[in-house]
């Protein structure tokens, strides 16, 4: 996977207690046991890390990490 994926994984490791080896691109957030509150927390962390704006629905429980990466990359970086 690409640089965006690596940066998302680093967020999961730094803020959410994962080990790098715990996650793979095909994992859904549900499979990673990240509930709705955790996904809002992750949304905040992604916005700060990438300088993009996400809606509350951009990261869903059934999204895979690979899909989340595409969503993040589709967002314009805020000025």
């Amino acid at each position: 996977m690409n640089d965006t994926y690596e940066r998302v994984v680093r967020l999961l490791v730094r803020n959410f207690g994962f080990e790098t080896g715990d996650v793979s691109p095909a994992d859904t957030f549900s499979e990673l046991e990240l509930d709705s509150l955790a996904l809002v927390e992750l949304t905040l962390a992604v916005q700060q890390e990438f300088g993009v704006k996400l809606t509350d629905d951009d990261l869903g429980a059934q999204s895979t990490l690979e899909e989340a990466v595409k969503v993040i990359e589709s967002k314009p970086v805020a000025a």
Partner: peptide, 12 residues
């Protein structure tokens, strides 16, 4: 806390 509770939970 990471050791006592587990890293995946402690942050919450």
């Amino acid at each position: 806390a990471d050791e006592a509770i587990g890293r995946r939970k402690a942050w919450r």
